[in-house]
């Protein structure tokens, strides 16, 4: 492992060469918005919110999967990046059926927070109003696909941490949806251990606990850090485990 220096938003920082730009930025309180990333899970680079500019390239790079290099000059808050981030949230808002006022995680929702953060007040694209399925067959939890942003955190936590791989993705493109086992009611899933990790890592109100009322539920993802740290040897974890 080598130590190197790089510049992020004009600040000179030191880092290890196996660290990602996102890790380095967060260590130094440089805020980069993320949605699919969650500490303790593998990174898939799918939400595209953490894209940053690197001097010398026209392309944008996802901070969560790009490793630091000596002398790298990174910018995380240019106008171009901010505009793209706002549009990504705008696209998400138009894609699902996100009705905050009646949502269990209202005021504790990562999507909602991101919308505030990027200054999204309305969307310029027509709402797609998809017909999505809600599944309340599990005794303790509910999945409401209307509020799903397809970040696949639930897929990854179930596969990588719990080792059950209940969740996966079916269909493609705009028709993608999260399914349990062989696309059967969650309550009938033989592989689900009812551990509830998927519910806790879900950034929105798509996976919720039964019995919570509007704006009552707060999700805690800290547990992941402890589980992952507790595992001394991590080699057996298949970090390529999305889907």
């Amino acid at each position: 492992m080598a130590i190197l220096t790089l510049t992020i938003d004009g600040e000179q920082l030191s880092a290890n060469d196996d660290e990602t730009l996102l890790e380095i930025a967060r260590q130094h309180d440089i805020a980069i918005p993320t949605l699919c990333h969650l500490e303790g899970l593998s990174d898939v680079g799918s939400c595209r919110l953490c894209l940053v500019e690197i001097e010398g390239s026209q392309k944008l790079f996802p901070a969560c999967t790009t490793r630091a290099q000596e002398g790298m000059v990174v910018r995380t808050k240019t106008e171009r990046l901010q505009r793209n981030r706002r549009m990504i949230i705008e696209l998400l808002a138009s894609e699902g059926n996100h009705q905050c006022a009646v949502c269990v995680v209202n005021n504790h929702c990562e999507l909602q927070n991101l919308a505030y953060e990027v200054g999204l007040t309305h969307t310029r694209y027509p709402y797609l109003y998809p017909k999505k399925r809600l599944d309340a067959s599990h005794p303790d939890f509910i999945i409401d696909r209307n509020r799903c942003v397809l970040c696949t955190r639930c897929v990854r936590v179930c596969h990588e941490v719990e080792g059950a791989h209940v969740w996966d993705i079916a269909q493609r493109g705009i028709h993608c949806e999260i399914i349990s086992d062989m696309d059967q009611p969650w309550g009938t899933s033989p592989s689900c251990t009812s551990c509830g990790k998927c519910v806790l890592v879900c950034p929105t109100g798509a996976l919720i606990a039964k019995g919570e009322n509007v704006a009552e539920m707060e999700k805690k993802t800290d547990f992941l850090k402890y589980i992952v740290t507790a595992r001394v040897k991590r080699e057996w974890i298949n970090t390529d485990g999305e889907e």
Binding site: R48, L128, Q171, G173
Partner: peptide, 14 residues
């Protein structure tokens, strides 16, 4: 579109 990333999944529809 495979639907993995948001710009391609939703952007192409719009």
């Amino acid at each position: 579109s495979c639907g993995k990333c948001i710009p391609c999944r939703v952007g192409t529809v719009h």
